[in-house]
Every structure is written in structure tokens, then in C-alpha cells.
Design a protein around this nucleic acid. Sequence first.
DNA 1: CGGTCAATTGATGTAGTTCAAGGTTAGTGG
DNA 2: CCACTAACCTTGAACTACATCAATTGACCG
Lengths: 238, 238
Amino acid sequence: MFAASYTGASHTPKAVHVYRTNCLHALFSKQPAEHLMAGQSLFFEGDDANHVFEVLDGTLRIFRIISDGRRVITGFLDARDVIGVSLRARYLYSAEAITPSTVRRLPRRHFDAAVVSNDELRPEVFARVSDEMAAAQDQMVLLSCKSAEERLCSFLLKYLKRITIPGERQATLELPMSRLDMADYLGLTIETVSRTVTKLINKGVLSIKDPGVRHSIRIEKPRMLAQLAGDSDEHADD
Amino acid sequence: MFAASYTGASHTPKAVHVYRTNCLHALFSKQPAEHLMAGQSLFFEGDDANHVFEVLDGTLRIFRIISDGRRVITGFLDARDVIGVSLRARYLYSAEAITPSTVRRLPRRHFDAAVVSNDELRPEVFARVSDEMAAAQDQMVLLSCKSAEERLCSFLLKYLKRITIPGERQATLELPMSRLDMADYLGLTIETVSRTVTKLINKGVLSIKDPGVRHSIRIEKPRMLAQLAGDSDEHADD
DNA sequence: CGGTCAATTGATGTAGTTCAAGGTTAGTGG
DNA sequence: CCACTAACCTTGAACTACATCAATTGACCG
């Protein structure tokens, strides 16, 4: 599961293409699609949490601005993610489109009513909330004690795991977010992210084919990436 | 709400002393009390998550051990907290008593069955999960970009908010955990925690009456503590 | 062609880590 | 009662990973 997609990360491959009338996706299917331009806001931290959203297309970032003006990105959201399953009266963060995006909006009371009345929906919602918690845990571990290289590798590795085809020995990641987004998500500066990327290129772990398209990163050595991520044996013995 | 008590943090004062037959607390009340010695484990990361626990007394820590052997404490749990509401098949962390503690244990399937069948219970469980998420968010912000002093002050401030009587101008915190626990929770070293505590004492924010009892910290200047915590205006404008 | 924005690269600074050395308290056993 | 040990905490000195500040490059675009 992908920690970066912190709100709603249940990417159970089986569930994705199964047509169930009572799944979470179906709940949104009647709602009209809304389009967001890159950089456009969906809602702000502190707003009344009146809606739950499903992402159909594109990538959004969710973040908080702290007192000194710095931004902390707590997650990225992609197609099929749902924003707001574990919310309270007010949004805990702002949400903004990184790329042009499409979402569907559901009034919170409809969502809650559906969850109460629908016995098939509830386990799915519960699973998503659990995924969120697991992702938050992972992110806390990352921020607590990982080095810049480990953070970046963990990040790339999780993105890689989403798109990877088992047989492939390498793959190309199309990262929609900027270096600044990555920095704000990983608790680093833009300069450190940039330096760490070039260091990994020099090690032969990554490559950027066209230096003009820096959002396109090819993973040359996935195994080495996983080692450098440093979460190989989480259940390490003492 | 107290971010440190990361799993189950709904300390709504009103709810605490209301006797409801269908509340979460009542669900555990039939179970026998189990006693844990200081340092004793309740379960380990990776174990099958067969039980949900309610803490009756004492303080526990929940943590993960990462590959290089370091420990990340993701939360502290006190009386009335519940461990495992947002869990999946396996525990995401280990749980261990800091002080001698008392807990009640409920089989996971009983808990799940009760949540499904009981319409009064579900909102309470949901509220607790939401509190967990909010606490996790706060912790991510803390770990992302706060300084050692801000981290320690945030930590003390949240503990203070739990026990404070509105009129009081200062209060004494009885911290059950060691400096090492605090360090592993705040993403710092024990030395930095120690140095930061003495720095705050020199500033007159804190005092330790009896140097022998270092777990007992008196807050001399709560307002200054709040300022130093640095999360005064979270909704700061741009 | 200048202007802007994102990313890179270099030089310097620093907060917090690491390593090392006491100090204090409590428990144990003579 | 006094060693003796083991945790736990504190303090100091040196180091380092990352931040900060500053300059440069490259892509895009009117």
C-alpha cells in the first residue's frame, strides 16, 4: 500500500475492477464530475467538512500551513483515492490539484447515511481508514529517523510498487509533483531533494533520460533502491 | 486532544463519567482486568491482531523497531484509551507497559460484531479513529519541521492540557515515561531532550522541584510554553 | 530576445547527533 | 552501615547531515 496516498490508499487490485453496486466507488458514480486546473484548491484547512471526494483522475496534494508559513504535505492523492473518510467537523488540511484533475463530490451527510445503512460499504470504509492509519504510521517512522536518501528512496519505492509489473527489471516513474512538493512531503528542502536525486543517478540507481523532463524518472536498480530505502526487515530481531 | 495518546484519544470530558450501557467502555466492562508489570509487553508488531484492549490504569507505549535497531514510539496510552480500533489483520506496532498497568482484553471478532450491530457504538468508534488520525497528522507536522524546543514544548503542552484546571496559572506534570521514551517519540536523542529540558528550566518555563524526581515537572509559564510550541496559529494566512 | 519559474550546484552555517565522561538514585548484598 | 552495580540523566567536545544563502543553468513563453 502506498503511504504517499495517505488519505484513502486501499488499492486492492481485485476490488478495483469488480462492479459492485454497493462499493464506495458506486456511491460516487451518480455525482457529476468536477474538473480542477493545476494549482486549484478543492478545500481549505479549517473549512466545514461538508463533502467527501473521490478522485477520478489527476493528482492532488493535501497539506497544512504552519505558523512560520512553511507547508507540510501529508499526502498525495491519485485516481480512486477518496478524501475525507476519517474526517470530523472541519477539514484537517487543505487539498489542491497538482495536475489537472477530476473529482466527484458527495455531501458528507449522504456519505455518513450510506455508511450507516449499507453493510457492504462499511468494511470498505473501515479498510480505507485502516490503510490511512498504516500510511500515517509509515510516514511517522520515515520522518522520525530516516536520512534524506532513505526518505527519497522510500518515496520512489512506494510509487514504484503501484505501477510495477512483476516481471519488469526496471520501470519509469512519471512523478506528477515538483521537487518542492517532494521536499515538503519528505520533510527536506528542495536543495536536498535535488542533491539526493543526482547522488542516486551517480550511483546508477536512477536515470533521467531527457534532462528536460525531470518528472520522468527511470528506476535502473529497483533492488538497490529497496535496500537504500532501509525498511527491508521491519520486524528486525534485537 | 492529546496527540501523544495516539491510539484512542477521545477525551471528551462529558462522555467520561456518563454511564451508558452501549458505550465503548461498557463493552469492556465484563472482561477481567489484566495486570502488567512495568516493561511488560502486551503484544508485538506483526502479531495477529486478535484482541482490542482498553487501558484502565497506567501508561503504555506503542512503538516500532526499524531495521537499524532504532525504536520509534508512535504514541502513549493512558487510562480510558483503547488500543486497536483502527487495526487490520496484524498489529502495526508493539505495545509495552511503561508503568504497572491494568487493561481489559476483548476478542477482535466480538469487538467487530458489536460495532456492526450497535448503532450507538459506531459513532464513538468512528470518533476515536478520527482522533487518531488527527493526532497522527499533528505528529507528522511536528516531525516534519519543528525544532527540538518546539517538539518538547508541544509534547509538554499536550500533557498539560489534559490535566489542567482552567483557573490554575501553573501545574505539575507527572510524566510516567523516561527521557529515552520522550526522545524516541519526538524523533530526537536522549541528550537533546535532556539539554532542551535544562534550557527551558533556565528560561524559567519549567522547574523540577526535587532533582531526584525528574519525572515530575512543574510548568511555571504555561503561556510561554504555548508560544515556544509554535503551533499557535495553525491557520496562518499567507 | 528578455523574463519567469523550476531545478541544479556550490559555499557556508548550524542544530542536533555522536562519542565520552561524570553524577545521582535505587537496589543488593556483605 | 557501607560498598557495588545498574539505570537513568546530565554535561561537554567534536562532528555531520542537512539547511541556508547565493549563483547558475535550462526550459518555456509571450
